[in-house]
Simulated scan of single mutants.
Amino acid sequence: MNEPTPHTERPRLDNLTLSRKEGFRQLAQAPRRIQPDALTPANLTALSTTARAGYDRQRRDWHANLGPIKTPQLSALQEDLWDIVDSNAQDGDKPKGAIAVDAFPGLGKTTAVLHFARKFHLQEIIEEGEFTQAGHERWPVCRVGLTSNTGMKDFNRAILEFFAHPARFRGTSAQFLQRALDCVLDCETKVLIIDDLHFLKWSDRNGREVSNHFKYIANEFPVTLIFIGVELASRGLYCEMDGAGDVTLAQTARRTTPLSMEPFAVNDKRRRREWRNLMLWLEKRIVLAEKFPGMLADELSDYFYARTTGHIGSLMTLINRGCQRAIRTGAERLEEELLNSVKIDAASEKARKQLEASLRARRWTSKTKALPAVRAGQG
């Protein structure tokens, strides 16, 4: 038999960092992964030891990097992102509207924004070229990821780190900010993504400092700000303290559009159909020798929903780890017994018992044909 063809044309991205411009470009411009060939159990057994090791390596990499998936949630968020970014083509003297993508962890908000940013980067390079008229490298997108207790100076320096500015090691917060503005202007950056904004210091006087800092960036930087975080409203993104110490609606709130993403639900036919479509998408892309039609969409649909409570991040983790174990153990298929031995995040495991109890009582189903026992108003 012909052994599976190794796919070596894609650059290795496992050592990539999005905190540097070269890493972001590598992600944005990397060709699409090629799905490994599907082999029958007999063909798999017939592989030589070397060929089998290479094939399993391809499958490990493939399953670890499934997606992003064009779910209804991702599509809706990206349509809103395009609307806002495209409408921010005003001249530089006009402030641009900002975006706050605020959702609980595990719902794919960062994945969705980065997928949008990749498409925006490629579109700008195609339309405007890799270099500006002044001869500088064009970087349509700058992405900054925050860490625990990041302050304003750290934030400004992180922008300089992205652009690899030579003066990023010494200076005041104000000097870093002015250098960051120079980078944005020289590289004609149009989108500034600030990930994990909830890590920024918000308490006490820092809250007002943060609010004023973002107002300055929105006014002076010709970019669309995209904030990504958890519970940003309650942390004070949209509010500031007035002179009397009372919370007032900040200018940031007037210029920032909040967007969100929701977990999958199965409480009506449309939502159950969306979940089934997701199962079918994943089923087509799983590369296991014992895979069969309906393995996910029919046999494991309720199981996956109960294990992950409809959170796409938890689901992708369970699929990935399940496939890795199925390959390593020789099971070559996904089934409940194998998946029960796979550990995922604590939040999903905590909610699992209640959902499984409801499933056993036939109070719900994720399948498109509702169970007879599902009461009116629940299906």
Rank of each mutant, 00 (worst) to 15 (best):
N149W: 05
K96Q: 03
F155H: 11
V141I: 13
D102I: 12
R57Q: 11
F104A: 07
P72G: 02
L66E: 07
N88C: 15
Q175G: 08
R118H: 03
A174F: 04
K96T: 00
G97H: 11
N65W: 09
R168F: 02
L114D: 14
L66N: 07
S75V: 09
F116A: 00
V113T: 10
T110Q: 10
A117H: 04
F163D: 02
G97N: 12
T110N: 11
E79V: 11
G108R: 09
I99A: 04
D86W: 12
S173W: 06
L77A: 05
V101M: 08
E79H: 07
P68G: 01
R118D: 00
F131I: 11
L122P: 03
L160R: 03
L114Y: 15
A167E: 13
I126M: 02
L107A: 05
C142F: 01
I125Y: 00
L114I: 14
D80H: 15
L177H: 14
G129F: 10
E128S: 07
G129E: 12
I126F: 06
D80W: 14
D102Q: 04
W82A: 04
F163T: 01
N149S: 13
P68K: 04
Q175L: 08
E124T: 02
N149C: 07
L74W: 03
I159P: 06
F163Q: 01
M152G: 13
A117I: 04
A134N: 07
E161H: 08
P105C: 05
E127W: 01
E79N: 05
L107Y: 12
S87P: 01
P95D: 00
T71H: 05
G171E: 05
P72E: 01
Q78G: 02
E128C: 10
R157H: 03
T110P: 11
L66Y: 05
R118Q: 09
A76F: 10
F176W: 03
M152A: 13
K109W: 06
G106Q: 03
D61T: 02
H165E: 10
A100W: 00
E79M: 11
Q58A: 12
D154E: 13
G171V: 02
H121R: 06
M152C: 10
R60H: 08
M152D: 09
K119Y: 10
L66T: 05
G97Y: 09
F162R: 03
K94L: 09
I99V: 15
E124H: 03
L122Q: 07
A64Q: 10
